[in-house]
Structure formats: structure tokens, C-alpha cells
Design a protein around this nucleic acid. Structure first.
Lengths: 224, 224
DNA sequence: GTCTATAACTGGATAGAC
DNA sequence: GTCTATCCAGTTATAGAC
């Protein structure tokens, strides 16, 4: 039996301006992760950029994974604000959905490196950290589903369309722009955002047009 | 100079049934990665399941990452076949797109664990391996874009819709089903596949309806 | 109280013996 | 084809400098 060891107790009220170095650590991590990718990047790389030994970094972070979480926290607040505003507006549901997709994507492009890091590396998170990300996504799903249901209630969108599927379809597409968007591309952020908003709403109203008939059982397999 | 040592030379034409153990290695890896996730899973876990030491595994693989690649190769051939068939059919472009989305998703659900592993863990790949995955995705994009352009040519889909954006939108949504689908869910694979195919085609024809007008500049921010 | 250095442990990977 | 030994990176624990 080891003797009951005393661990350094963190004070409940942290000193006010003591976090400047912490911000530098997060900033250095962003640059390193962006340049090399999360997996390839080493804690040593981050420490080097700060001029400290890798072991010393663990005063600021709990783990390499935690460093990723600290980066993600920078955008969580903003994203939630956009979502809540879309939910609170008074315009027709489809207009609000359109606004949400467009505004969210424009924010996305404005902080592209950060958002890209989020969507390409979030899967490295495990346990509690992963759960937090999934919980936040669930909030997005709830709001978008609600907007779709409202549009179904007023007859704009066909009632037989599965609102859950539709919400997933739209959010998946929107969140995946990080996989193909590049700053050097010829499309401006505004154009892409408007294009995506158009498709998101078009999907809902268009589903009424292609509903039943467009599900042929592909009898035409094998040309000829 | 060490004496020219004779290493076990692999015959150019591999003996027919010599790969059984290799298959066992891949199968063990699938089970371990599926159970614990790629990051949390250790090479030791895979070795344990096979009853060998972790160092010995490296006779069959180059790296943990390579093990993931070997798993992915199991599905590449099938996915490419579905894609090519969609491109080769004689039906109208939108019907072919509908067929592709539905068939691809049904294949997806039939091999859910494998496909899920692919879409949730592919981002762990780096360098050459990552490039291969991206190249394969590019093929999907090419075919889907082509179907969309054909539908625009015959007037079914508005010409001012960006076919590249639309292809990304659809493929992103389809490939993301792994993030929310669960075997225990109440939706059958057929229902989801049909629902997604409907939305994919609806998006294209619906874009003509919501085109210009539905882009209000959200003057209604801040309810009140 | 804030920060750094050091050593030890775990997991991924390699080389060479058998 | 498998094992032993060993290396390196990420991480933890802890002692202690300022």
C-alpha cells in the first residue's frame, strides 16, 4: 500500500490575468496542427515554438487531446450564437433556415483554418471530449429539425419527408465543406454560402416534386 | 560486408492459399478497431487476439496506419463498381443519380461496420494513404457532377446551379450517414436509402424553385 | 504560486536472432 | 514466421527553481 499521496490542489478562484501564456500555448498549437495535421504534429513541435521543454507544456494542458479541445472551445461560443439567432428570428421557417446556412458558412469561411481543424480533427477526440462535440452537434440537429417541421406545418415542405433525415442531410453537407474548400479556389465564401443555402432549402421543397415516381427500381441495370 | 544473406524470397507468383494468416490479421484488426476505435486500439490488442507478440505483427503490416488501409481495400472495389454502373446506365441522369444514391447507401448499410470504420477513421491516414482515399473520392465527384450536368443539359435542373457545389453537397451528406446511423435505429436501410435518394434529386430540381427570392438579407435579426 | 526539469511508463516501430 | 531487444514519441508524476 503506497502512502496516501498529496496532489497539488488547484485553487478554486484562479488569479485574474494569469492566462496570457495559456493563450500563447493554444495559438502555437493551432499553427502546428494546421501545418502538420494533428496526428503528425508532436507535443515537441508545440513546445519548440514556445521555447520550452515538452514536459513543461503539461502545466497548461492535460494531454495532446486536451490541446485540441482548447482550440475547439474558441469557436463553440460563436457557432451556438448563430444557431440560437436562427431559432429566435420571426421570419418564415425556410427563410430562417436559409439565413442560418448562409450565416454559418460565412462564419465558417471567415475562420476557415480553425473550423477546418475542427471538422477534420474532431474525430481524434475520445471519451468525455468526444461526447461534448456530439452533444453540440445534437443541438444543431434539434434546431434545424424544428425549422423543417415548422415549414411542414405551414405546407411549404411535404409532410411525408422525414425531418430527421433532412436535418442530417443538410448539416452533414454544410459541415463537410471543410473537406473540399480551399482559400485559393475561385469561388468566394459568399457565393458558396448562398449556393449551399439555396440547395438546403431547395432540397426540402424539391422533395415534394420527385417524391413517389422518381424511385424506379433501376430495371435498366446493364445498359443494352 | 556481411555475407550475402538469403532472406526468405517471396515468389513472384504467390502460392494460392498463402494469405490466410494475412486475412486473419485484417479481420482481427477490424474487430479491435470497431470495438475500441482506431486511436484507443493498440497494436498489442490486435496481436493478443491473434496470439502473437506485437513485434511479430510487423511481418504482415508496415504500420498501424497500414492496417487501416488493408481494411479499407476490402470495400474500395465494390464502391467503384456501383459508381461505374451508375455512369454506364441508359436511364435519364436524375434516375441514375437516384439509383446511385440508393444503391450505394444500401451497400453501405449492408457492410455498416466496415463502412463506418472507413468514414470515421479515414482521417487518421497521412501522406500517400490519404492521397489514395482523396483520389477515390474525386472519382465519385466526377461521376456525380457529370450526371448533374446531363440533367442540366436536358432542362430538368436549373443551369445556374453550380454542379460542383451540388455534387459536394450530395456526396458529403451521403458519406456522413455513418456519423448518425445505428443498426438499432427504427429506420430500415431501405427507407433511409430511398429518403436520401429522394432528397438528393429533390435538391437539384428544387433549387430552381427557391433560386433568387429566397435569399433575404435576414433583416429580421434580433427578434423584437 | 508559477513555471521548468527529470525520470519513468506506455504504445508504435525496427533489427536481428532463431 | 515468430520472438527478443531496443528505440522513439507521447504522457505522467514529481521534485524543485524562481
Amino acid at each position: 500500500m503506497p502512502p496516501e499521496k498529496r496532489r497539488p490542489q488547484r485553487p478554486l478562484v484562479p488569479a485574474l490575468q494569469q492566462r496570457r501564456r495559456e493563450g500563447e500555448v493554444v495559438q502555437a498549437a493551432i499553427e502546428v496542427f494546421w501545418a502538420k495535421g494533428y496526428t503528425a504534429a508532436t507535443i515537441q513541435d508545440v513546445a519548440d515554438k514556445l521555447g520550452m521543454l515538452k514536459g513543461s507544456l503539461y502545466y497548461y494542458i492535460d494531454s495532446k487531446e486536451h490541446l485540441l479541445v482548447k482550440i475547439f472551445q474558441l469557436i463553440n461560443r460563436d457557432a451556438a450564437a448563430i444557431l440560437q439567432e436562427a431559432a429566435a428570428q420571426q421570419a418564415p421557417p425556410l427563410d430562417r433556415l436559409h439565413w442560418f446556412v448562409r450565416t454559418y458558412l460565412e462564419y465558417f469561411f471567415a475562420r476557415y483554418e480553425l473550423m477546418s481543424l475542427y471538422f477534420t480533427e474532431w474525430s481524434h477526440l475520445t471519451g468525455e471530449y468526444r461526447s461534448e462535440v456530439l452533444a453540440q452537434r445534437a443541438e444543431f440537429e434539434v434546431v434545424v429539425r424544428d425549422l423543417i417541421r415548422q415549414a411542414q406545418a405551414d405546407g411549404t415542405v411535404p409532410a411525408d419527408l422525414d425531418d430527421r433525415h433532412a436535418a442530417f442531410f443538410i448539416l452533414s453537407a454544410v459541415n463537410s465543406v471543410a473537406t473540399w474548400y480551399r482559400r485559393e479556389g475561385h469561388d468566394t465564401p459568399e457565393i458558396i454560402a448562398a449556393s449551399y443555402a439555396r440547395m438546403a432549402t431547395g432540397l426540402l421543397v424539391g422533395a415534394g416534386i420527385v417524391a413517389g415516381p422518381a424511385v424506379p427500381d433501376a430495371g435498366a441495370r446493364r445498359t443494352g
